[in-house]
Design a protein around this nucleic acid. Structure first.
Length: 268
DNA sequence: ATGGTAGGTACCCTA
């Protein structure tokens, strides 16, 4: 079972790229962030024709928006409002698998970027980000079981490890890699004894990025990337991790997203 | 130290 996550930065603009991605990678489940469209304008028809007949979309005008598209049916779908806002950042589905009695839960997340100033006292966007991660940590602990198959994936907007950024020292004061948010993400990580499915395959001392800013003449040459997109799995899923792929080549597509797709293949 | 680009929207917001 191939599960893909991508911050697509407008699903309407990049529908042709999404369909190219589908034809090349044939994922079973697609989790999108920053779809930037209300649900009635989401381009579902082509995606249903491509085989993704099971869809759970939750978007709004202009900003944010998350979606799960699947070849496999859902037994449940959920929309979660976080920290008192209805800003389309968390949807979840349950999928039956041949391997587990309990359904596989997939949580598609778009954690707030957090603005520029890394001080929650003066920057309410950063306060929102920290509050969001706090709430996720508590919520997973309360609502999910350690022994259930659960995946949390998406654009977390935090690069937790030193080798998740091009320069640990130079990014310590840059929102996405500050100690306070990394610590909070660490708490969320511990909440369900999560396993980082990408670092499962890529050693922690090796650089690993999923995002390169648009504000660079030549993203490849400067290579100032960050690993902002993540796939986490609970312990029961660890033995089934088969392979991963970070589609770096997608950053060179015409009119690319600044994030690239990340895929994990599970052996069931 | 600064400003660089992109998308959506409606003349400015967010990333």
């Amino acid at each position: 079972m191939k599960v893909l996550t991508w911050n697509i930065n407008s699903v309407r603009l990049r529908l042709p790229l999404l369909r190219k991605l589908i034809s090349e990678e044939a994922p079973d489940v697609i989790c999108l962030q920053e779809t930037k469209t209300p649900d009635d304008l989401f381009p579902l028809d082509d995606l249903v024709k491509d085989g993704y007949g099971h869809t759970h979309i939750h978007g709004m005008k202009g900003y944010n928006g998350v979606a799960i598209l699947s070849r496999l049916p859902f037994t449940e779908t959920h929309i979660h409002h976080r920290v008192g806002k209805e800003d389309c950042r968390h949807v979840a589905v349950n999928i039956k698998t041949p391997t587990f009695k309990k359904p596989l839960q997939i949580h598609c997340l778009y954690i707030p970027a957090g603005g520029d100033i890394p001080d929650p006292a003066v920057n309410e966007k950063f306060a929102h980000k920290l509050g969001f991660v706090d709430e996720m940590a508590k919520w997973f602990k309360k609502e999910c079981d350690l022994d259930s198959p659960v995946m949390a994936l998406g654009d977390f907007n935090i690069a937790p490890l030193e080798q998740d950024v091009w320069s640990h020292k130079q990014l310590l004061d840059v929102v996405s890699h500050t100690p306070v948010e990394v610590e909070k993400l660490g708490r969320m990580f511990k909440s369900l004894d999560w396993h980082d499915a990408i670092r499962h395959f890529v050693p922690e001392d090796q650089k690993c990025y999923t995002w390169w800013s648009y504000r660079n003449r030549d993203w490849k040459k400067s290579n100032r990337g960050r690993r902002l997109d993540h796939i986490w799995v609970t312990q029961p899923l660890v033995p089934y991790l088969k392979s991963h792929k970070i589609l770096q080549s997608a950053r060179d597509w015409t009119q690319p997203s600044d994030h690239v797709p990340v895929i994990v293949d599970l052996d069931f």
